[in-house]
Simulated scan of single mutants.
Amino acid sequence: MIEIIRVREGAFNPKGNWTREQTMLAFKLYCEMPFGQLDSRNKEIIALSKMIGRTPGAVAMKCLNIASLDPKITESGRVGLGNASSLDKKIWGEAHADWEAVIAECEELLAYIHKEKKLPEPETLPIEERDFTGDVRAALVKQRVGQSFFRRAVLSSYGERCCISGVSDRRFLVASHIVPWNEDATIRLHPGNGLCLSAIHDKAFDKHLFSLTDDHRVILSKHLKNSKDDFLRQVFWVAEDKKISPPDKFAPEPSFIARHREKMIQDAI
């Protein structure tokens, strides 16, 4: 269970300016949905509109306003609606300073709404049955919820396809961290710290057997280049110098790519 916070009166007012609480949840939805699905007829937008007291059209417009803050969107010629408010910009900045804190706040708001409206509890990834203490279980739930957000955000950014192989079966797709989960809590949920990879590409990337150049071309480690395994040669050698398929949102952060590449180089020494 996510901790249920006390929410101030008027947090989900259907009239007037958007509140912080409403904007936070619209921001989370923007992160988790493909850009092309930000439409008032989308079932997730309709569901959120009912929860926060805004119309589906207003939620879709808010998501498109938030999109105008995403450099990947604007660099591609898509400008969203270009009417981002100061509150939109504030939340965007807060998220990029500490993604884990912002997503945790969003999950607490959702837990509050589900309780107040007597809605079914939001789904979380299962935790194996063990004799965990309350604090440990709460921490595990928080971690699983964060992982679920990261997966949705990364896969939606890449159109649910491996950015190297093009594999589109979700059973084989992984939201792969560029900077490992345990290295920096402030970026572990940053969608720009993720690549959508097939399971085998994720494993190799996690082991620093390949990395990316600054312009997102695949570079193989000497370990893969020297491999005698026919299968690995077939899978990875054809990818060398190939540019990954770009995401629709949240381009890989250059500094994160550089950190990963440097680790690959160090491992090869």
Rank of each mutant, 00 (worst) to 15 (best):
I2L: 12
E3T: 11
E3P: 03
I4E: 05
I5Q: 14
R8K: 09
R8W: 00
E9D: 12
G10T: 04
N13E: 13
K15F: 10
K15L: 10
G16Q: 09
N17F: 02
W18F: 15
W18G: 10
R20H: 12
F27C: 09
F27S: 13
K28G: 11
L29Y: 01
L29S: 10
Y30D: 05
Y30R: 13
P34Y: 01
G36F: 00
K43D: 03
E44R: 15
A47S: 13
A47M: 03
K50M: 02
M51G: 01
R54A: 03
A58I: 02
A60F: 02
K62Q: 14
C63P: 01
C63M: 15
S68D: 05
P71M: 05
K72C: 13
S76N: 14
G77Q: 12
G77D: 13
A84E: 06
D88S: 05
K90L: 06
E94T: 03
D98C: 09
W99K: 03
W99H: 14
E100M: 02
A104Q: 13
C106G: 15
C106E: 13
C106F: 03
Y112D: 04
I113D: 09
K118R: 13
K118M: 11
P120L: 04
E128T: 08
D131Y: 01
D131I: 03
G134P: 00
D135A: 13
D135G: 00
A139H: 05
L140E: 04
R144E: 02
R144L: 00
G146Q: 07
F149W: 04
F150S: 06
V154K: 07
V154H: 05
C163D: 09
I164C: 08
I164R: 10
D169C: 05
R170T: 08
V179W: 04
N182K: 14
E183L: 08
D184E: 11
G194I: 10
L197G: 09
S198R: 08
I200P: 00
K203L: 09
K203Q: 14
A204I: 03
L209Y: 06
L209I: 04
L209M: 13
S211K: 01
L212A: 07
D215N: 12
D215Y: 00
V218L: 07
V218G: 04
V218E: 08
K222I: 02
K225D: 04
N226M: 11
N226T: 10
F231E: 06
L232A: 14
W237K: 10
V238H: 07
D241P: 00
D241K: 14
D241H: 11
K243F: 00
D248S: 13
E253P: 00
F256R: 13
A258D: 04
R261K: 12
K263F: 00
Q266D: 06
A268G: 03
